[in-house]
């Protein structure tokens, strides 16, 4: 067992998680097991900050393409300004699509919302489609997804924050190179400003702190329509999945105006499911398919 998997395993054990059937042995940490090569770093045009910013965003996006699908067991912890908190557990499935990702989020706790499931079909150039399944009515309801500024389950995240940030939907501008303090120490970053080009947004701009070496978003600052800093998102506890894709285990969104915050800890993550073995059956796990992202799939299982 190599160093990384040891670390991952012991971390999972330390967290006391039900890792039972979810094997982490398949994490091919030494080599890129995904078959998706790291794209060649292009020659950036650093003369125009607008061009440079867009190039950096494009490359970071390309760098994170090809992971196919993902599964995560997450605990959301909502803190009010007092620091009082509540936890909600959920499972999230995502299918990577060129035409827009598809995702399902299903709640596990608290008991009264166990089984509530939300299905989203993202559309790069149109409004996303959303459905919600309520176990008490046993019905799937189409819900209007026009409001990307809607809060996600009362957390500090909005749908806008959680959906894939499509590069073309923003005006980018390179600001500067900097170092920021993170839980993993000092990290070199590009600071890039992103102004939404779509109208249904809660923000005047975002400032993205893009890691200069790993091409991952370490931090994002969100500015409200008044131009005041509203929220700060910090990604931490990074995992280098299959030695190819960087995924944070912890996402923390702090509202600097109301001092409320939400932490999402993804205790168990699988990226590209076909690279894992189901320990219970001993078989390779299949990749997710479109079938799992339909309204029927939403009703079928709770």
């Amino acid at each position: 067992m190599n160093a990384l998997t040891t670390r991952v395993t012991s971390w999972l054990l330390a967290c006391g998680l039900v890792a039972g059937a979810l094997s982490t042995d398949d994490l091919a940490a030494q080599e890129n097991a995904t078959g998706v090569p790291v794209p060649k770093t292009p020659k950036f045009d650093t003369t125009d900050p607008v061009v440079y910013g867009r190039q950096l965003a494009d490359y970071a996006d390309l760098y994170d393409t090809g992971w196919k699908d993902s599964y995560a067991l997450s605990t959301m912890t909502l803190f009010d300004a007092n620091g009082d908190s509540v936890k909600r557990d959920s499972v999230q499935l995502i299918l990577e699509k060129h035409t827009g990702d598809k995702s399902v989020i299903r709640f596990r706790t608290p008991a009264e919302i166990k089984g509530v499931a939300a299905l989203t079909h993202e559309h790069p150039n149109a409004t996303d489609d959303n459905w919600l399944y309520l176990p008490a009515t046993k019905r799937v309801r189409r819900v209007s997804g026009a409001n990307k500024t809607a809060s996600f389950q009362g957390t500090e995240f909005t749908y806008e924050d959680l959906s894939n940030r499509i590069v073309a939907k923003y005006d980018w501008r390179f600001l500067d190179e900097a170092h920021i303090e993170t839980t993993e120490g000092k990290v070199p970053v590009y600071r890039i400003e992103a102004k939404p080009r779509y109208s249904d947004t809660g923000y005047s701009k975002l400032v993205v702190y893009l890691n200069r070496e790993q091409w991952r978003q370490e931090r994002i600052e969100f500015f409200d329509k008044a131009g005041k800093k509203l929220k700060v998102l910090d990604n931490s506890k990074w995992k280098h999945r299959h030695n190819r894709f960087w995924r944070p285990v912890r996402i923390e969104m702090r509202n600097v105006q109301t001092k409320k915050r939400t932490i999402i800890d993804s205790s168990t993550q699988m990226l590209n499911l076909a690279l894992y073995t189901n320990k219970r059956t001993g078989k390779k796990r299949p990749n997710l398919t479109d079938k799992q992202f339909t309204t029927d799939a939403l009703t079928g299982k709770r």
Binding site: V116, P135, T137, V143, N147, A150, T158
Partner: peptide, 24 residues
């Protein structure tokens, strides 16, 4: 376990549904 549903769980789910659509 798929918990048994009642008026309380439905209320909780309606609230969740509302929050899904309302602005923060």
């Amino acid at each position: 376990l798929a918990p048994g549903q009642n008026a309380s769980t439905l209320a909780a789910q309606y609230f969740l549904q509302y929050e899904n659509g309302a602005k923060p």
